[in-house]
Structure formats: structure tokens, C-alpha cells
């Protein structure tokens, strides 16, 4: 049985069916990029997949889902909430425990966020917030990540570097991307969506990149 599997599924958003006839299987260990124009339903597809194994997936939502009035440390620590008991979590909320701070620091070192560790997330820039969201996923340290445009707010060199970190850290990786060249470098399979359906499902090796344009997967 496949890790993720959709069998003639559909996705609804705001009362309307936006994706239909979805047939898709993803095995453990695969690295998949979902491609498509903005608003086509990539996020809805990710949500369908996420629900299948919610308990072990590190999620990086498009709007980050951060708590603005908590610090970078707290937001990263939230990746571990499910692993600890309530009193320990509460203690960390009130007064961060040294061990957790050290662990969080290892994550922020890699993301270049350490000097902001005790700044409130609400005071950070968009790019920094995006890295906090990724930091939380790293802190969760699960086998699988589903990330929705995880590097959209980062500049070229840094986005490549962080995307590589994401793929290196997890066994199974599912990304929604719209920077196609960047995506193709890091994944081994692409799924394209257009007009409410899957129009492409192929290995990256030997993929004809110009066909992506022909299929309408790229913003004009």
C-alpha cells in the first residue's frame, strides 16, 4: 500500500469543487513537487495529503501559521509540543528550559536566525518568519514534510540553500512550488495541476521543461 494515495478524490474550497478526478500515489522516500499557477488548488491538494498522516508530518503552511506575539524560540519549540507533557510545555512557555533553547539554537544556526532567537515573531520580516516556520518543521523532526511555497519570501541563493536543507532533513518531501527551476533541482518527481485536474505526473529525469509551459503550469 502506498504511503499517500488519492483515489478519484476531489477537493472543495469555499463551497466549490476546485479539484476533481484526483488519482495520485506517493511512496515513502519520494521527493515530489506540485506545480501549477497560483490559485489553481495546490494548497488544497497538500491539505488532502496532509490529512492522511497528520500526526507525523511537519507542515509549513503558506501563511506560516506562526504566533506573532511569541518569540522565535517559542514558535520553533511548538514543533515539539506533541512530544512533551503539558507541565513541561507550560514551563517552556513561561520560562524556556536551557536544554530546549540549545536544541532550538541548533536549528536557528542552520537557518541564520540565532541572533533573533528571543525576538517576537511579529517584529520579524517576511523572510525571517518563513525561516521560523521551516525551523519549527525541523524541530518537529518527523520523517515527512509538506511545505507550501516554503522559500517564496527568500532571495535566490538563500532559497536554494534552505530548500536543500529541507529535502536533506526529511525522507519524504512534498513541496508546492512555483519557481520551477528551483523545484526541479531538488525533487525527483513533479505533479502538475491545471484546470482542476492533474495534467502531469512525471520523473524529473528526462523531463522536457518546455512542456511545463505548454501545459499551463506556469504563471505568465
Amino acid at each position: 500500500m502506498a504511503y499517500f494515495s488519492l483515489d478519484d478524490a476531489q477537493a472543495r474550497y469555499g463551497g466549490k469543487t476546485i479539484l476533481r478526478n484526483l488519482n495520485l500515489t506517493i511512496e515513502r522516500g519520494e521527493r515530489v513537487a506540485i506545480l501549477g499557477r497560483s490559485g489553481v488548488g495546490k494548497t488544497s491538494l497538500l491539505n488532502l495529503l496532509y490529512r492522511q498522516h497528520a500526526e507525523e508530518i511537519a507542515l509549513v503552511p503558506q501563511d506560516f501559521g506562526l504566533v506573532r506575539s511569541l518569540t522565535v524560540f517559542h514558535n520553533i519549540y511548538m514543533g515539539q509540543l506533541s512530544r512533551h507533557r503539558l507541565p513541561y510545555n507550560f514551563l517552556n512557555l513561561i520560562h524556556p528550559v536551557a536544554r530546549e533553547v540549545a536544541l532550538a539554537k541548533r536549528v536557528t544556526d542552520r537557518l541564520g536566525l540565532t541572533e533573533k532567537l528571543f525576538d517576537r515573531v511579529g517584529e520579524l520580516s517576511g523572510g525571517q518568519r518563513q525561516r521560523v516556520a521551516i525551523g519549527r518543521a525541523f524541530y518537529f523532526n518527523g520523517p515527512t514534510i509538506i511545505a507550501d511555497e516554503p522559500v517564496s519570501a527568500l532571495d535566490g541563493a538563500r532559497s536554494r540553500e534552505i530548500l536543500k536543507l529541507i529535502t536533506d532533513q526529511h525522507k519524504t518531501v512534498i513541496l508546492a512550488m512555483h519557481d520551477i527551476p528551483l523545484a526541479l533541482d531538488q525533487v525527483d518527481r513533479v505533479v502538475g495541476i491545471a484546470d482542476g485536474q492533474i495534467v502531469l505526473d512525471a520523473k524529473t529525469t528526462g523531463l522536457n521543461r518546455s512542456s511545463l509551459y505548454d501545459l499551463g503550469l506556469v504563471d505568465d
Partner: peptide, 12 residues
């Protein structure tokens, strides 16, 4: 509601 939804793993 986003931040609550974005916490990974089963959390009470």
C-alpha cells in the same frame, strides 16, 4: 485559526 492548525503532531 492558522497557528493552531499549523502545530505538527497530535497536540491536546
Amino acid at each position: 485559526p492558522q497557528p493552531a492548525a499549523a502545530i505538527p503532531g497530535p497536540v491536546g
